[in-house]
Simulated assay, not measured.
Amino acid sequence: MDTGAYALSFARYFLTSQPNEILSPAKPTVDEQSGVILKNTDNEMAVISLTMRAKMPKRGVVAGENGFITVDDFTRPEKALITYANGKTEEIEEGETAKGLNYEVEDMQAAVLHQTGSQTISLSLECHEHLGQCQRTVGHYLPV
């Protein structure tokens, strides 16, 4: 699976609205490293840093005024840690990492078979367009 697409999807999920600015400050070598900044009209920003050369955790951090959320292995998470501004923490657990791809397939099947709106399919379509925009604007793909 494309890690760049997962990172973009993770970031977009927490943005209030679709990014209207997508920037990549440097043209990296294909499939090795990438940096992307997303910004929307709600004055929210996401920064994505990806690399294939360094062994780094797939960690997503969502920061807000009242604290932050840390999600390790964001491509197939089963828990997240909320850290509030006062230092209190709360762990949320849902699903099983090993069943991650099954959840994606089930969601897609339900959307196709029942022709119902998927919770994430519109975000996936948006992210697909953003990946294409990164390629057209900067001349590279996000790492896979």
Rank of each mutant, 00 (worst) to 15 (best):
D2N: 15
A5I: 12
A7V: 08
F10G: 00
F10C: 03
R12H: 04
R12W: 01
Y13C: 06
F14A: 00
L15P: 00
S17G: 07
Q18A: 05
A26S: 08
K27H: 05
P28V: 09
T29G: 02
V30P: 02
V30W: 02
E32A: 10
E32S: 14
I37R: 01
I37P: 01
L38M: 05
T41R: 01
N43L: 01
E44G: 00
L50D: 00
R53P: 00
R53S: 06
A54I: 12
A54E: 08
R59G: 02
V61S: 01
V61I: 13
G64N: 03
N66C: 09
G67P: 09
I69G: 00
T70H: 02
D72I: 10
D72K: 10
F74H: 02
T75C: 09
R76M: 14
I82Q: 07
G87S: 04
E93T: 14
A98R: 09
A98E: 09
Y103P: 05
E104Q: 15
E104M: 13
V112K: 15
H114G: 10
Q115V: 09
T116H: 14
G117M: 15
Q119F: 12
I121A: 12
L123C: 05
L125Y: 02
E126Y: 07
C127F: 03
G132I: 15
G132V: 13
C134T: 14
Y141C: 10
Y141E: 08
Y141K: 12
L142G: 07
P143G: 04
